[in-house]
């Protein structure tokens, strides 16, 4: 199932790289988020905002004291994610539990830039790599990237 849903993801990295070249609106990730300040949160997917310039996912996270905070998880643009095979409505199932590692917003708001997503069926989607070791869901920078160096699977 996951394999099928994500089959189109083969070009995701390439598209993400190509995007700034075509002069689309693109804020720098590092201007808003700190790639060296990564946390893991789990919660219930509340809503998917399929919009430009960046798709974002709202995750309702229940704090230890019972208070629910809605986090905004930011990633690539909708056309990039669509071309990557990630637009399937069955993949983002509102009401189900997702876990994600994310680079925290520098301004302290409950926002983050997604590194890794753990899906309801316990598969890991390694979307982004920061400094090796900075992602608790991907401590050794695994994924055929050789500790963050894309060699073995490079096109």
């Amino acid at each position: 199932m996951m394999r099928k849903l994500l089959a189109g993801l083969a070009v995701a990295g390439i598209l993400a790289i190509a995007a700034p070249r075509v002069a689309l609106a693109h804020h720098a990730m590092q201007a808003e988020f700190d790639q060296n300040n990564v946390v893991v949160i789990s919660g219930v997917l509340k809503k998917v905002n399929w919009v430009n310039p960046h798709v974002n996912f709202l995750l309702d996270v229940t704090e230890p004291d019972g208070k629910v905070t809605t986090w905004t998880l930011v990633h690539a643009g909708p056309n990039q994610l669509r071309a990557a095979g990630l637009s399937d409505r069955d993949f983002f199932q509102v009401g189900k539990n997702y876990t994600a590692s994310l680079a925290l917003a520098r301004n302290g708001s409950p926002r983050g830039y997604v590194f890794t997503i753990k899906t309801p069926d316990d598969k890991f989607i390694y979307l982004t790599f920061g400094a090796v070791g900075s992602d608790p869901l991907n401590k050794d920078g695994k994924g055929g990237l050789g500790n963050g160096h894309p060699t073995s699977f490079q096109n």
Partner: peptide, 10 residues
């Protein structure tokens, strides 16, 4: 799934 990037250090 592993998103393969050609960026420096991914």
């Amino acid at each position: 799934y592993h998103n393969l990037r050609n960026d420096r250090k991914g």
